[in-house]
Design a protein around this nucleic acid. Structure first.
Lengths: 206, 206
DNA sequence: TTCCTTATCGACTGTGCGGTCGAAAATTAG
DNA sequence: CTAATTTTCGACCGCACAGTCGATAAGGAA
C-alpha cells in the first residue's frame, strides 16, 4: 500500500495535469484540444495522463465539477442574506463576476466549453446540475421579485435569456478581457429591471 | 458546353445541398456535422457533394456569405433613414430580430457556428467582414449617440458587449425558440440606454 | 543485492472523417 | 445506333486523435 507521501504526490500530479489542461483550454478552442497538448503542457507523456485519469472526458468533467463547486461556495452565502429578491439577484451576478475576474480561464472554460464536448450520449453529465441550479435559483428570485413588484411584469423566461446573454457578453465577448465593475453590473441590470415606461422617443438633442 | 437548362439544374442541385446542410446544422452541433450527414440529408452520395463544392468549408462559407448578404439587404435601408442614432440602433436590432424569426436555422447558424469552424489558419474568412461591419456600424451609432447625448456616457466597448450578449441570449439561449417582439427589444434596449440614475434600492413594495 | 509496487512513456491500434479515384450510370449530341 | 459529356457514388487513402500495451525505470522494503 502506498505511503502517505506517495498519496500526496500522486494527488499533486493530478493537480498538475488539471492545471495544464486548463492552460491548454484557455489557449486553444476547446474542440481542438488534444491529449498530447495537455500532456506536453503539464510535462508528462501522453500515456501517463491515462494513468491518472480514465479518459479525456474525465479530465474535463473534473475541471467542470471543481469549478462549479468553487463557484457555489461563493454564491451560497449571498442567498442566505435577508435582502430583497432584487438585491440578491444583483448580488449573485456581481459575485459571479468577481470570481470570473479572479480566474478568467477557469470560468471561460466553465461557461463556454461544455457545449462543445462530445458528451457520450448518456444522461446529463454531473456538472450540468450545478448550471441548472444556478438557472433555477435566479429564475426563482426573478419570479419572487415580480410577485412582490420589484421587477416589472414581463415574460420571465425572456428576462432570463436576456440577462444571461447580457452577462455572458459582458465578460466573454470580444478578444481581450475587460474588467467589469460591480457598479456597472448593477447599473445595467437596473436598467433592464426598471425600463423607462415611456420610451424617450426622439430624445432631446441639445 | 452545357446548355441553359443544364446550368439551371446544376444550380438547383447546389441549392439542394446547401439546404440540406442547413438542416443538418440545425439538428447537430456544428462540430459534429459530417459530409456524410449532409449527403444523406440532401439525397446525394458523399462524393457527389465534392462534385459541386470544393470542400466542406466551401459549403459552410457559401451558407455564411449568402446569409450575411441577405441580412445586410435588410439592414441597409434602415441605416439610410434620417433618424436619431438611437432610433436607428434600435431599429437595426429589431430588423435583425425580425429576420431571425423568419429563418431561425439560418441565423442560428450565422451567429453560432462560425466560431467552431476549423478555419484553415489563413487570413480572416470572407464572411467575417460582414460581421465586423455590423459591429462597426452599431458601435458608430453608439458613439454618435453618446456624443449627442442620446446615450449615457459609459464605456462603449462594454455597452457593445452587453447589448451583443443580451441580443444573442434573447434569441438563441434556451432550448425552445421563443418569439421576441420588437417592443420587447425596444424596451430592454431603452432600459440599458436610460438606466435609472439613482438605482431604486429597496424598491417600494406596496 | 533481490523483489515488488508505483510511475513513465514511446510506439502501436482503432476509428472517424475529409477528401480522392475510377468506374459506371445517365444524359445529350450527331 | 455510337460517341462525348455530365453526373453519381462506393470504395479507398491519409491523417489526426483517443485510448492501449508492454517495456522500462524509479523507488522502497527485505
Amino acid at each position: 500500500m502506498p505511503t502517505q507521501r506517495q498519496q500526496e504526490e500522486r494527488e499533486y500530479r493530478r493537480r498538475q495535469i488539471l492545471k495544464g489542461a486548463l492552460v491548454v483550454f484557455s489557449k486553444t478552442p476547446s474542440e481542438n484540444v488534444t491529449m498530447v497538448d495537455i500532456a506536453k503542457e503539464s510535462g508528462f507523456g501522453k500515456a501517463t495522463l491515462y494513468y491518472y485519469f480514465d479518459s479525456k472526458e474525465a479530465i474535463v468533467t473534473e475541471l467542470l465539477i471543481e469549478g462549479w463547486q468553487d463557484l457555489w461556495v461563493c454564491i451560497e452565502p449571498v442567498l442566505e442574506a435577508s435582502n430583497s429578491s432584487k438585491q440578491i439577484f444583483i448580488h449573485v451576478l456581481q459575485t459571479i463576476g468577481e470570481q470570473i475576474e479572479k480566474n478568467r480561464s477557469l470560468y471561460e472554460f466553465l461557461f463556454n466549453a461544455p457545449a462543445h464536448m462530445p458528451s457520450h450520449g448518456e444522461q446529463p453529465p454531473e456538472w450540468k446540475q450545478y448550471q441548472v441550479r444556478l438557472y433555477t435559483v435566479l429564475k426563482g428570485l426573478l419570479d419572487d421579485g415580480m410577485a412582490s413588484g420589484e421587477f416589472p411584469h414581463v415574460n420571465p423566461q425572456m428576462m432570463m435569456r436576456g440577462i444571461g446573454g447580457l452577462f455572458h457578453g459582458l465578460f466573454f465577448l470580444g478578444t481581450k478581457p475587460q474588467k467589469i465593475s460591480k457598479e456597472e453590473i448593477e447599473m445595467l441590470l437596473n436598467g433592464i429591471f426598471n425600463p423607462p415606461t415611456e420610451p424617450t422617443k426622439t430624445h432631446e438633442v441639445k
